[in-house]
Design a protein around this nucleic acid. Structure first.
Lengths: 220, 220
DNA sequence: AAACTATTCAATAAATTTATTGAATAGTTT
DNA sequence: AAACTATTCAATAAATTTATTGAATAGTTT
């Protein structure tokens, strides 16, 4: 094997794995699976895909060894193969946000159209935690909260927030978080909370980002 | 714009930028440009591509805003738009190496076929630097050395190593490095040096990895 | 064992990406 | 201004990816 042949093979393999990520639906699936494992049905629902379609995309990810599979009862659950998959997604996400003005504009416009546009980064949250009284609110579905969450976070899924809003302390500043920077649950939560007179801000990143940084987490 | 539309657009944009990376030749170009700027002609030569072909791939990268262009005399030079591009490449590279056994095997086989298979990581080099007497040898072409190098590295391009080998101290352990983990210049150098009785090892990563870590660099 | 259920498979058409080729162009040098 | 040069453009065919549809399957529950 000569040098060129060697390179062709190495870059060929790397392109293969990159191609498996290079699709809008598959990127969305990756981000979802960063929260924990999901059945094909759940994945299809969350991504608005027909089931056969979701399955097909999952096969591509499986082929590339980016996801692991296991069956429980009648359902087949997919999960990310390991943290490097999320790291690659995160690097692409950050490259995209920084390079493509369209993305930042989309996020900004969407938030402003319905919610207050303001957020705090993990960095900022850590500072706030040192100084003041902060309530961290997880507004993802309970199943995801159970699979892993920021330590000491309170769980109130976004769907239940209006009814259960009085469970939250009035005095404390509330930081709401969800799946990641493109997840809008936290935005919706901040809108509800502000309207009810709470001081609330969204966390820019999501649980997987927190976890990757090695910060304290809990799970059931 | 509803939630689904918002997500479709965001992930659509992210997929677009990911697609621009998802090609063996373009990945190779990215890795090359991590060393500094190169003309289309040089890029074509380094990647064994016809010039029209290299140009076409560069247009794709330019469209995705991953590279910047500037003309000098008759030549047009391309460079990476910023360090996030290299970060994304690095994340994909590491994902690939970890997930695809084929890649590690390819690298291992290729090295073993011609050279001693042994290397030290940047981490390991830093430790060695604290304790012992180390000569860091840059075997990339001089132009790349001039654009940026590990601080205190000596430059002997791989093509000149045999003639100039006596410029190197006999006593000191030599760590040879080049462009990155898939670059074989350092392997070739180690082979030459070991044969001549030097104690030499290759650095696993390349100059861009060192630079990204914020470690001391120099340039002309 | 039969019935059921979630998921995968297979075939196909449409869309996208890629390599190839030769011509065109933008800018520089003479 | 003419000649030159590096790069880009444009057209095309082949290869790959994707969505869609309906059937098949593997395994579980009854």
């Amino acid at each position: 094997m000569n040098k060129r042949e060697f390179k062709d093979r190495v870059y060929g393999e790397l392109a293969r794995i990159t191609k498996s990520l290079a699709n809008p639906h598959r990127l969305e699936i990756i981000e979802l699976l960063a929260q924990g494992d999901f059945s094909v049905e759940q994945i299809a629902e969350q991504t608005s895909l027909p089931i056969a379609n979701a399955s097909q995309h999952l096969q591509v990810l499986k082929q590339a060894q980016l996801v692991d599979v296991n069956r429980q009862g009648n359902f087949i659950y997919y999960r990310l193969a390991n943290s490097n998959v999320f790291k690659a997604w995160k690097a692409l996400r950050e490259l995209g946000v920084e390079r493509i003005a369209t993305i930042e504009k989309l996020v900004k416009d969407f938030r402003q159209s319905k919610f207050k546009f303001e957020s705090v980064t993990i960095e900022g949250l850590l500072q706030k935690l040192e100084s003041g009284k902060i309530t961290i609110l997880d507004v993802r579905p309970t199943t995801e909260f159970n699979k892993g969450r920021i330590a000491n976070a309170i769980s109130i899924p976004i769907d239940e927030l209006k009814q259960r809003i009085n469970e939250l302390p009035k005095r404390s500043e509330i930081i709401a978080y969800c799946r990641g920077p493109f997840c809008v649950y936290a935005d919706e939560a901040v809108a509800v909370l502000n309207k009810a007179g709470y001081k609330a801000t969204r966390l820019e990143e999501g649980f997987p980002d927190w976890s990757l940084m090695g910060l304290p987490i809990e799970m059931n």
